[in-house]
Design a protein around this nucleic acid. Structure first.
Lengths: 214, 214
DNA sequence: TAGAACTTACAATGCTGTCAGTAACAATTT
DNA sequence: AAATTGTTACTGACAGCATTGTAAGTTCTA
């Protein structure tokens, strides 16, 4: 005999509250890293106790995973939105994002710190970043292939290397920028490097370093 | 009246013992990060208690600083040795190092994790990395200027952007590689990107992305 | 024989996670 | 419409562990 079950689910305001927590967590993890960013501090920022946060997310590990997903869903970063424009437009978008990021060092730092931390022993964010890089490289590669096709070029190896390189410069420059925010060359470098890499794909030239390297 | 002081200083074997500790610390910090890498674990690896390590280095903070300096002194990395060959040779050296690094993921990881961690609140390694990047950018810039001079080119802005970009790709690619070690494109990408960036300095071409960006 | 190189023991803190309880609320019953 | 009742969203207290650093004592050796 099936008794009539009483179900209520989360209350209307809870979704918003959780977003507040995720936002606060992003800030704290950004400033102090995941391992060094205590739940209590996140809790304090949303006027709650740390037990309250654990009520919502179960564990600190799960909170991190949700934080990373949250950053994707909201257009906080904007780098990898659902709908990516093809061809040239993607790179123009990347360059604009790089400039826009100057206004939000918090998110930039969170991303830089958490991605590097993710490669350490048993870090709960690792799977997220593995997948993320794979996806992003794929998107950049698609855009490059499209540009190649328009010009009647085909060079799969080059496209793969270039995709990784584009993401790498952007990440690497962010770390340097976080250590030296007044250095204008760092802000301008993304534009320069992306141009250089895309050009090398579309219009390859002989290496200035010789051809006898490993 | 100056009494004859009895001074002993460190014992002969101590220097070697400290190097053992630094090596162990580099490994542990590399695997788990600084914040998450306990002294006890480092101590265990050199068959000592954590108090023994504190006897030698005073505090965990000071140990980190010594670890970073140690990595420079020993040719562990090889990237920034005392005597850097000028011009083209520097870039050839960078490319070789990138390939060689495939054999030592431990050090690569230590570097990637610790540099990113250094941008967090009150991290004791921050000053080290700030200085390191400034120095390295300077060295790359010198090499680029030399190459420019040989070809009668002069473009200070470009040189500054390119120097930062070269270091950035290398660092960024390392993080991606740590997350996906079987991806051969990642190993080959440094070579590709460095070529692309150096070429863009020596032989600039119009941007494929248009000139209307921020 | 003083000082170097430790060890053991411990103090002090900080952190995550659990548990029991409380207040508010939403769904159901009366 | 009011009373009922299960559920949600917490709090406060605390267990339990990990970690850094200190202090006192021991052994060895220059």
């Amino acid at each position: 005999m099936a008794t009539t079950r009483r179900r209520s689910g989360p209350r209307p305001e809870t979704a918003a509250r959780r977003r507040e927590i995720l936002q606060a967590a992003l800030e704290i993890f950004g400033q102090k890293g995941y391992n060094n960013g205590p739940l209590a501090e996140i809790a304090e920022q949303v006027e709650m106790t740390h037990a309250g946060i654990l009520h919502h997310f179960g564990s600190k590990d799960r909170l991190l995973v949700e934080v990373l997903r949250y950053r994707d869903e909201s257009d906080v970063e904007g780098l990898d939105e659902q709908h990516i424009p093809g061809g040239t437009e993607l790179f123009r978008h990347l360059v604009r994002t790089a400039f826009a990021n100057e206004e939000r060092p918090g998110i930039v730092q969170a991303y830089a710190v958490l991605s590097a931390e993710s490669v350490t022993d048993g870090n709960p964010g690792r799977a997220y970043f593995e997948e993320r890089y794979t996806t992003l490289r794929g998107e950049v590669a698609d855009a490059l292939r499209e540009m190649c096709a328009e010009r009647g070029i085909d060079s799969p190896d080059t496209v793969a290397r270039a995709s990784a390189s584009v993401l790498a410069v952007m990440d690497g420059l962010q770390v340097q920028w976080l250590l030296d925010r007044d250095n204008v060359a760092l802000a301008e470098a993304s534009r320069f490097a992306i141009d250089a890499i895309v050009t090398a794909v579309l219009d390859p030239r002989p290496s200035p370093l010789g051809d006898d390297l490993p």
